[in-house]
Simulated assay, not measured.
Amino acid sequence: MVSDEGHRKRALRRELRERRRHMTSSERQAASEGLTRNLVTLVEDLDVRSISCYLAATDEPNTRPFLDWANDRGIRILFPISREDGLLDWVVSDARQETEGLFGLPEPVGEVLSPLAINAVDLIIVPAAAVDSAGIRMGWGRGYFDKTLGSMEACPPVYAVVFDSEFVDSVPREVHDQPVNGIVTPTRVVTF
């Protein structure tokens, strides 16, 4: 049985997907440039040498220019690979070659590492549908990142990437939802 919070999440996700689909190419370009600038600032401020980040799908905030920047600076990048059992494997890659993974999401090609590989990064960058002012992240409903973050003994800083309109006052929260340490949007970096 789906809780009231679960129903609220589904409705909000539908609304957010629709908003993302209606962004113009110039809005997407401006968002990509601002997001790249802010992700670079975050990585430099934290003096990060190894990160976990995802390859952005078509309607997601574009992480690809930032990933190119990180590769050019020799930052080790670990990418998530979805497994059917609900866990994430990881790949170290430059993301220049990719394939379609589970659920049709882009995934880089490379040597697959175990779910424990995430423990060796300095910063985790995750996708989100929305994040609220208390740092509660609402994902897209499969729970991969919540499971991963909830199982880590010593978790490095976790920042969610969202468009500015997706940083909201509150999101529906369920027991399994994991908070984040901050967000990166096209116009700002917020640390909770």
Score class of each variant (00 low, 15 high):
D122V: 03
A128G: 10
I125K: 05
L123S: 01
P108V: 08
G110N: 06
P115W: 09
R142V: 01
F103I: 00
V131S: 04
S114Q: 08
V109A: 07
S114L: 03
Y144P: 00
P106W: 10
L123H: 07
L102D: 13
D122P: 07
S114K: 01
G110T: 14
L102S: 13
T148I: 04
G143Q: 02
V91P: 05
E100R: 02
I136K: 03
I125D: 03
N119C: 10
L87P: 01
P115D: 11
P108S: 05
R83L: 15
D122K: 14
L123C: 02
K147R: 13
E111Y: 13
A117C: 05
D85W: 04
L116M: 11
V92T: 14
R137E: 05
V91W: 08
R142T: 03
Y144E: 04
G141M: 01
R96I: 08
A95G: 08
N119P: 00
M138T: 05
V92F: 15
P108A: 06
E107M: 11
A130T: 01
F103L: 11
Q97R: 14
A134E: 14
R96Q: 12
P115A: 08
L87W: 15
D146M: 07
D89T: 13
G139P: 04
S82E: 09
G135S: 09
L88V: 00
I125S: 01
V112F: 11
D94Q: 10
Q97N: 12
L116Q: 05
D146C: 01
D94V: 05
V126Q: 10
R137K: 01
E107H: 11
S93L: 08
A129I: 06
P115R: 03
P127N: 13
I118L: 02
I124C: 09
I136H: 12
T148S: 08
D146I: 08
P127K: 11
E98D: 09
D146R: 00
V112W: 07
D85T: 10
G104C: 06
I124T: 06
W90M: 04
V126I: 09
I124V: 12
R142A: 14
V131L: 07
V126R: 06
A95R: 04
Q97K: 14
I118E: 05
P106E: 11
D122F: 14
G104V: 00
G143A: 02
S93Q: 06
S133I: 10
D132G: 04
V121N: 02
S82G: 12
T148C: 09
Q97P: 01
L116I: 01
A134S: 15
S133Q: 15
R83M: 15
N119Y: 10
G110I: 10
R142G: 13
A120M: 13
V109S: 04
I118K: 07
E100I: 06
L123F: 00
V92I: 13
A95K: 07
G135L: 11
R96A: 12
L87D: 15
S133L: 15
S114C: 05
L102P: 00
S93F: 07
E107I: 09
I136R: 08
V121C: 02
R142P: 00
R83S: 14
P108K: 02
E111H: 13
S82F: 13
K147T: 00
P108D: 01
L105F: 14
A128H: 03
G86S: 12
R96V: 09
I124M: 12
V109N: 03
V109P: 03
T148R: 00
E98S: 14
P106V: 13
P108G: 02
S114Y: 01
Q97F: 13
L87Y: 15
E107S: 10
F145K: 06
A95S: 04
T148F: 04
